[in-house]
Design a protein around this nucleic acid. Sequence first.
DNA 1: GTGAAAGCGCTAACAT
DNA 2: ATGTTAGCGCTTTCAC
Lengths: 341, 341
Amino acid sequence: MATRDDVARLAGTSTAVVSYVLNNGPRPVAAATRQRVLQAVEDLGYRPNAAARALSRRHDDVIGLVVPNFDNPYFAALGTAIEGAATAKGYTVILGNARHEDERQAAYVETFLSRQCCGLILVGAAQESDGRNGPRTSAILKREQGIPLVSFDPLPSGANGTVLAPDNVTGAAAAVEHLVGHGHSRIGMLAGPERFMAVQERERGWRETLDTAGIDAASQTVMRCRFDRYEAFDLTEGLLRSPQPFTALFIHTDEQAIGVIHAARAAGLTLPQDLAIVSFDGIREAGLITPQLTTVQQPITQLGSRAVDLIQTQIASRPTRRTTEQLTCRLVTRMSCGCPG
Amino acid sequence: MATRDDVARLAGTSTAVVSYVLNNGPRPVAAATRQRVLQAVEDLGYRPNAAARALSRRHDDVIGLVVPNFDNPYFAALGTAIEGAATAKGYTVILGNARHEDERQAAYVETFLSRQCCGLILVGAAQESDGRNGPRTSAILKREQGIPLVSFDPLPSGANGTVLAPDNVTGAAAAVEHLVGHGHSRIGMLAGPERFMAVQERERGWRETLDTAGIDAASQTVMRCRFDRYEAFDLTEGLLRSPQPFTALFIHTDEQAIGVIHAARAAGLTLPQDLAIVSFDGIREAGLITPQLTTVQQPITQLGSRAVDLIQTQIASRPTRRTTEQLTCRLVTRMSCGCPG
DNA sequence: GTGAAAGCGCTAACAT
DNA sequence: ATGTTAGCGCTTTCAC
């Protein structure tokens, strides 16, 4: 493997100059010299050693991204958005799959940090009842003052960075209002595990909207299951075979709603006539499934690019406190709610 | 950030000893000394600098994995399997999303290589008409002699490593035989883009089985579309509204079959009565959708762990030629083919 | 505009 | 069993 020394030798210059041209700085280089260097790089098939560079610079243009599970289309889409935005700005992203385990998330964070990554983006890996990151992850984050950090969950106290999220409460409210507008008064909720902030927020949006509409939320059905379609299917399949105390359901995610659609089909129900549903996220599949899902569309692309922007900002001036930022969602009406489509 | 010097100082020993205990070798360390070192590491919250280590060792225990698209459940599952196997063996995997672009795949390969990764696993990113990797990726692979390499597509000539894949031909044959067994004689195929090896192989299995059964394959319908359910939906939705010259379809992937199921529903067809389908892959969703998919199940977990084993083998003795390895699939009969389920 | 050289944090051969 | 030390390939300050 050719090194920078070889390039310098071939170009008849010093190693410093090679750096200057490869990095476009910090010193200027004469056009002719630059040409010779570039030529030498080409001839040698030279590839810079990123480890050496990271060691010398004490940081690497790599963003560490941890997602809870890339089998989930929403996380896959968000991951793709983040990766796209990062790549466009010249960062490389390295992806870890936490599988919803604090241990694994912590291991990835350690790995990324030890590789001198320039920032961390953590998606939906809460483990604690207060919606914060799990103990192992939290411990690392608290120690790691100054690392650019964007989290889609609340940060542990002591960790600095920004919490980025969709406006769950408002989005959920729009969804439930829409269902009320369709004339429903018995509107249940299929929520997620209680320890997630997003779960709590969407549930709050549901509850408050119901109350505003004069419907007693406390007497409505609340069900809970994990985020995947399979679990939602298992939960609702048997249940939907008998009459239920709701005519409509607000569902925490599209992914879960897809499970409900399958379960309803298995139970012989026709949606939206027998059961109207509205969910949250706006994954692509929401537009494919029958009935097409009315859903609260998250600005996934913007969330991705905003996350990267925030990392960039924090690289420039290290985070010294926690900030929060919410992006607005918009209700996309399709057919599952009872609209003509 | 504490360094190895700090640890040595606190433990009252030399930096070499710290390395010996942290790496469990290459020299033995007295139990008492080891304890002091471990204690110092703990006290300082010391985290080794992976960049420095990679620079010094000239390699890093990281496996670079490139998938074409992690929005696709099959690739997500395979990625998860690979990641799980790698983690279990002490490797870290860094994931790149090529989005089916040679440029992007090549960029990831470069990145991984420049970070001293110890091996490369490339999944389904063929770009050439012969099923091989695209020009940019191929150029890199050819130059990079000796890097442990596992590819799920054919390797460019000049590159060494092993091509790992399911036994597509045999699997496809089993699927088509099953359809013939159900009494179908007009069995079309929904294939993928022709340039992929897997596409050619599954198509061959279909063709040969038809011929063996005395059915003229050349007069059967062949359709093609990309690997996602959306494209399969778009392709077949209009089409299925009018009578078709096939009563059964062998579909290249479950993902595409899901698109067909949605399209059939939109067209008012009932599966499997109006159209029987069998597909390939065995993703989890095959068991959820209605009708449940009869499919050729790939041994996804084994493919993942085998890929990592192969990397490990090649680390021990560098690859000097190309080898091929196929894993057997098995037909899982469910309802989409016409079986009672 | 260019070159020399001092590190960055770690590994491992060599010495004790 | 432990310590010394010469790199690994790159960046960057400082001199010229």
